[in-house]
Design a protein around this nucleic acid. Structure first.
Lengths: 166, 166
DNA sequence: TGAAATTGATTGCCTAGGCAACCATTGTCT
DNA sequence: AGACAATGGTTGCCTAGGCAATCAATTTCA
């Protein structure tokens, strides 16, 4: 194992991956949400449709993991998508616990329709990056994700907090 | 302006920066929160203390921008930090609208105390990265952030959504 | 085989955070 | 100076999402 890259002693958030990735998220999300502000679907809903569209998720549980949402929240999210006729629920034949989700033609159209403004935004933001740099960034993030996915998602073992929340 | 890096036609979320950065966030946040699960402060509270500690934020409005939170939510967040004796509010002399925030010694200790486990986590995750690669990733993210900060945070101009939310 | 643990999904309940209205203060433009 | 816009902060209200309990189905393992 190589020398660690970060040390607590001279910690500087501006050089920490946690801070930087979070900051990217905090800066981009408002722009993405603005794109959906006058549409009849939210950014989160669009992400869900895209997740189904691209095969990243096939069930509610997939979607929950994908969005890092609670299972309950995801059920309600899917409810909305079903209500609007964008998603279809179908009890699985192989494993009767799972409910398979699929996009309706309208859902598919709704997902695809909002891709261009998002792509435009990112092209705008990365306009000063070279092709090489963009590629590098994508590759590094992909490796980081692979490493994180290998890491067991540890759940909060101790439910009680130290101090009373009151 | 160079050739754009992304196109809507052959969109693939696994190669999109929005998807990748969001995924990093979704995968890391649970780990970070697990670190605070048995403590008497939350991850968000710790981030706030760190923001004050590192001078990234000096006021409630700063903190709101920093966390990408609503001003109201931030007021209540600060309330909690003040109640616990970690943060002090002080009306500014120069601009009597602003309330300057500062860490108490306890607040400073609380912030610093939780740095090591976070750093350990990131060292663990990046253990297979070379020093060069880590540096590169940090540099690219930093440039991305600079570009995003230059971009005006567009607010939702049209308040009404297209379809009735009901 | 059968008991226990695991997983998927749903629901009720509760909290963190978004939205809007509000006031005070400051900056800007004429 | 005075009107108007912009900013900082607080509060009430509401919603999205977290937690826990529950049930059904499946897997694991003694």
């Amino acid at each position: 194992m190589a020398k660690p890259h970060f040390s607590a002693g001279d910690f500087n958030c501006r050089k920490s991956l946690g801070y930087l990735t979070r900051r990217v998220q905090n800066l981009t999300t408002p722009h993405a949400e603005a794109i959906f502000a006058d549409q009849d679907l939210s950014f989160t809903q669009w992400i869900s449709l895209m997740g189904l569209s691209e095969g990243v998720a096939k069930t509610s549980a997939d979607l929950a993991r994908h969005l890092n949402h609670d299972a309950g929240a995801t059920t309600r999210l899917v409810d909305q998508l079903v209500d609007r006729g964008w998603v279809k629920r179908e009890r699985s034949k192989e494993d009767r616990r799972v409910v398979n989700l699929s996009l309706t033609p309208q859902g598919r159209a709704m997902a695809r329709m909002h891709v261009p403004p998002i792509v435009d935004f990112w092209n705008h933001i990365t306009s000063e990056f070279s092709a090489q740099e963009t590629k590098q960034l994508i590759a590094l993030l992909t490796r980081l994700i692979a490493r994180l996915e290998a890491e067991p998602a540890r759940e909060p073992l101790v439910k009680e907090k130290k101090g009373a929340m009151k």
